[in-house]
Design a protein around this nucleic acid. Structure first.
Length: 567
RNA sequence: GGCCCCAUCGUCUAGCCUGGUCUAGGACACCUCCCUUUCACGGAGGUAACGAGGGUUCGAAUCCCUCUGGGGUCACCA
């Protein structure tokens, strides 16, 4: 064996095709990228689409956009045009889709067969299954071994029976030592690796074979991947030796877990939904959620995942919140890509000392395998949120406004349409210091979009207290509803509907009628125009709603409160 | 179950390799108080960990062993 000892590292991220990049994959990509780019190396992407059962059309590489959004760009790989027009991808080692590299795999596969290091194997699934059951019954781990030479006569018989062969690697009985830059050194005892399949009956290579061939051909020097591949590494090493390939440096990254200790996975959304469906004893899809067809296949098989749209619709119908798993989920929720990268890097790596806020440039400069954690990390969304909050409240206001605008353009177009530039700008200044995400300004001001006549007043404890419904004010003075009535009249006469004027008018009233307690006036007004006790600062809110909407809303609120109090 | 790996506050982690400076540091969360027109932000404090047991040593979070706990893997999926 030869160990790759190039001064310039080449790393890769090699996912199976999927529409979305989940946080675990994002971290692997981030680390691989940082490792290579911090050492003047190359980072490439390869799509591992050797499973024909999973769809692998070009449309299913949505994760490329997620990667680009995170600021991770690849020197070689699938071609992609970033939103800013930059062309990414391509390169001299393509194609970068494994399904387009079959002839390459076949060449090396034949080489192994010719050398007697691999052989055709004709077992049926049923026979293999029987073998496995047998091993289980004897409490042994099943290890496939060559079951004797297949003669020409056997071969003819199998063919006549309609059997199809696979190619298996003759792995031998040697112990295999894996050097891992993260986990250290581990030795798999002799006999642990069986004669695994390297070419499936459909002619496609298995993951193990394709990965080894491609990493060699693409000059990959360092492989950072999920820890679930650790044991597989033995197979890859055996293959590399048999093929006379160089051996890359390995680093296996621990998995990322949910707070409840379960492995964070793409299926978590479905898990939440299945639970809700079961709890409610539903036997048919709720109206306006998923189609009967999708529902049927989803209910029938625990392994089936709902489409993203289906999952969102069903979650809405069931009133459950889907966990954010994919990079895109966080994007929609208004997280900043630089914060996500920072936080992702902190799950499994740290620069040492007390430093924990950093950008990708810093990561690129400082990242090394020696400081990668061996232990699985739990993904703490609250801490992520805290990081995001810091980043947002610390932004120059114009940057916040610009990024929020971009977010709104993609996910909240209705606000853009309704507010117009001036009010949108006001919304930004009103909301920045109380926003944790780019989406918060919109999430917290849904009442702005509501038709005046359709605004609902939330009948909860805080509202009742502020309006004095059911609980006459302790001092026997005026209730919130009384103040609201008075303010409605005053506001009707206000000509200059601006924050300073509104505040001055209300303050004057409060000093005279509410003992100077501005809150006694502000809260009822807030409820009146927003429907609840939570909104941006009241004067801003009044301006955002506008006089022509505020007055009818206050009227409706007064009527509603009077009716509610009367009961 | 076989094989492999791992083990510091509730969580992410610093410290461990090169034992003493660790009565174990930071951050998030949590609790208390302050600020406050709501919600947030902010400010000041506080609770909280070396999984257990044996060694080695003058001295162990740091080195060794056992146990316990956790993770990964055992496919014609990647």
């Amino acid at each position: 064996m030869t160990t790759t000892n190039s001064a310039i590292p080449v790393t890769r991220f090699a996912p199976s095709p999927s529409g979305h990049l989940h946080v675990g994959g994002a971290r692997t990509a981030l680390f691989s990228w940082a490792f290579a780019k911090g050492r003047e190396g190359k980072f490439l992407i390869r799509i591992e689409d050797t499973d024909q059962k999973r769809s692998s059309d070009a449309a299913s590489v949505g994760f490329l956009r997620d990667l680009e959004w995170l600021g991770i760009r690849w020197d070689e790989g699938p071609e992609f045009t970033a939103p800013d027009g930059t062309r990414v991808g391509g390169g001299p080692h393509g194609p970068y889709f494994q399904s387009e590299r079959l002839s390459l795999y076949n060449r090396y596969c034949q080489q192994l067969i010719d050398a007697g290091k691999a052989y055709e194997s004709w077992d049926t699934p049923e026979e293999l299954d029987a073998l496995r059951k047998d091993a289980t019954a004897r409490k042994e781990a099943f290890r496939y071994r060559c079951r004797g030479e297949t003669t020409a006569a056997d071969r003819a018989r199998f063919l006549a029976e309609g059997r199809q062969s696979v190619v298996r690697f003759r792995s031998g009985f040697e112990a295999v030592t894996i050097h891992d830059e993260v986990l250290g050194e581990a030795t798999l005892p002799a006999g642990e690796v069986d004669d695994f399949v390297i070419r499936k009956k459909d002619g496609f290579p298995t993951y193990h074979f394709a990965v080894v061939v491609d990493d060699e051909l693409m000059g990959v020097t360092h492989i950072l991947r999920a820890q679930e591949h650790f044991t597989n590494t033995a197979k890859h090493i055996l293959l590399q030796d048999a093929l006379g390939f160089r051996r890359p440096v390995y680093g296996h990254l621990s998995i990322i877990k949910n707070p409840d200790d379960s492995k964070m996975s793409k299926r978590d959304k479905d898990k939440v939904l299945r639970k809700a469906v079961k709890e409610r004893g539903l036997t048919a899809p709720p109206a306006d959620s998923v189609s009967l067809v999708e529902w049927a296949s989803w209910i029938g098989d625990e392994n089936v995942q709902l489409s993203l749209e289906g999952a969102i619709a069903l979650a809405q119908a069931l009133k459950v919140t889907l966990p954010e798993i994919n990079v895109d989920d966080f994007r929609r929720s208004g997280y900043l890509p630089e914060v996500l990268c920072n936080f992702l890097a902190l799950n499994g790596w740290s620069p040492g000392g007390d430093v924990e806020k950093f950008d990708n440039a810093f990561l690129l400069q400082r990242f090394g395998l020696d400081r990668v954690m061996k232990t699985p990390a739990k993904f703490d969304r609250l801490k992520l949120l805290a990081f995001n909050t810091d980043a947002i409240t610390g932004m120059p206001p114009e940057v916040f406004a610009k990024r929020c605008h971009e977010h709104a353009r993609q996910f909240r177009p209705e606000f853009l349409a309704k507010l117009g530039d001036a009010k949108f700008a006001l919304l930004m200044t009103a909301c920045q210091e109380r926003s944790k995400t780019l989406d918060d300004p919109f999430r917290s001001t849904a009442f702005l979009l509501t038709e005046d006549a359709a605004l609902e007043f939330s009948d909860d404890k805080n509202v009742r207290k502020a309006l004095g419904i059911g609980t006459p004010s302790a001092d026997g003075g005026k209730s919130g509803l009384d103040h609201l009535r008075a303010m409605r009249v005053i506001l009707g006469t206000v000509g200059d509907w601006s924050q300073p004027t509104l505040e001055a008018v209300a303050t004057a009233y409060a000093n005279e009628q509410a003992g100077g307690k501005i809150g006694a006036v502000a809260q009822p007004l807030r409820i009146g125009v927003s429907g609840s006790t939570v909104s941006p600062p009241i004067w801003d809110t009044l301006v955002l709603v506008g006089k022509s909407s505020a007055l009818p809303r206050l009227d409706r609120c007064i009527a509603w409160a009077a009716a509610t109090a009367g009961q």
